[in-house]
Amino acid sequence: MKSDERRQAIKRQREQLIQDLEAIYMAAFDRLGELEGEVGEVKAAQLTQMILNSKTAAIEPLEKEIEKPVITTPGEA
């Protein structure tokens, strides 16, 4: 497998992981709506903030790696 093909395969895996994580976090937020009545608005808001922080910490490094420019060396003349 060529290096460009490897980079593309890794990029696709990162993108898939981001999609999977987004789905997990969306499900967690959906459950929070149901939980608010049980634990109260303040506790639900605190948990929401923790989940948002967790989501950011999980996804940002993956996105940064995808957006990182590919540095190549010039070919021999």
Rank of each mutant, 00 (worst) to 15 (best):
E5K: 04
M26N: 15
I71E: 14
I51R: 03
E76F: 12
P74D: 09
L52N: 13
Y25M: 00
L32P: 06
K43T: 10
E65G: 02
K43N: 10
Q19K: 14
G75W: 10
S3D: 11
L62K: 03
L35K: 02
I66C: 03
L17M: 14
R31I: 01
L17S: 11
F29R: 04
I24L: 09
R7W: 02
G75A: 15
S54P: 02
E41W: 05
M1F: 11
F29W: 04
L32G: 07
G33R: 11
Y25A: 00
T73V: 12
I24S: 03
Q13H: 07
I59R: 01
T72P: 04
E76G: 10
V39D: 05
T72D: 10
E67I: 00
Q49R: 15
L62V: 10
T72L: 11
Q49L: 10
F29K: 04
L32A: 06
P61Y: 03
E15W: 03
G75E: 07
L17I: 02
S3P: 00
D20G: 06
D30M: 13
E5H: 07
I24C: 00
G75H: 10
D20I: 04
E36D: 05
T73L: 15
G37N: 06
V42N: 07
V39G: 02
Y25W: 02
Y25N: 00
L17C: 09
P74F: 04
K43E: 15
V70N: 11
V42Y: 06
P74W: 04
K2P: 13
P74I: 05
A28Q: 09
R7L: 13
R12H: 12
Y25G: 01
R6C: 05
Y25K: 01
I71R: 13
T48D: 12
Q19I: 03
G40N: 08
S54M: 12
R31C: 04
L62P: 08
E65R: 04
A57L: 08
E38F: 08
R14C: 06
A45F: 01
G75N: 10
G40Y: 09
R14L: 13
A23K: 15
S54W: 02
M50V: 12
P69R: 03
A44Q: 05
G75P: 13
A77S: 12
I59H: 02
E15K: 09
M1I: 04
E22R: 14
A58V: 03
G75T: 02
E5I: 09
T48A: 10
